[in-house]
Amino acid sequence: MNIFRFAGDMTHLISILVLLLKIYATKSCAGISLKTQELYALVFVTRYLDLFTDFISVYNSVMKVVFILTSSAIVWCMRRHRIVKRSYDQALDTFRHLFLVLGCLVLALIVHDKFTFQEVFWAFSIYLEAVAILPQLVLLQRSGNVDNLTGQYVFFLGAYRAFYILNWIYRYLTEQHFRLWISCISGLVQTALYADFFYYYYISWKNNSKLQLPS
């Protein structure tokens, strides 16, 4: 494992912990899209179907369990926690996320490495992760402004994407048989979706003003 991959995993983990701590500390999930969080939980569950069949390392196995548990905890809080669920912006979070799920499932059935249960669901999870941020971006756009912690959450998610791209470049240059095209192309699509958000994040930071997204 190279330093970029590790930095990517850590910023990914930090982004999830920032969100969980924000929800826990403020007892509020205002500005957070439940649909995006449900999609991420689904991404982790379908990608880590190999948890009990293929062992890579203790690090990998522990991180997989942590990602499944933390993302499920966020969904649980937003849906079931007595106080937290009151602050959920249900009226603004109207993205049809089922269409994303179906679209990614169809794509995974067409484009995959091998036609096996695990490989199709692995490809599905990669495609779904690329577009899972869309309901969150739509919610931010509708609510007009972004509080600091939500901004930091998206910032760390973006850092994770950037580190993973550096990791793929590094692996492509140093490993003979590195050919993860499904990951790389989906990863670039995902990063492009963040690039737009990052632009406005940077503008608001530079002007020291509240983050405003164009409608």
Partner: peptide, 10 residues
């Protein structure tokens, strides 16, 4: 590692 079906990333 790095083969397509090995999935050694998270």
């Amino acid at each position: 590692g790095g083969n397509v079906s090995e999935h050694d990333e998270l």
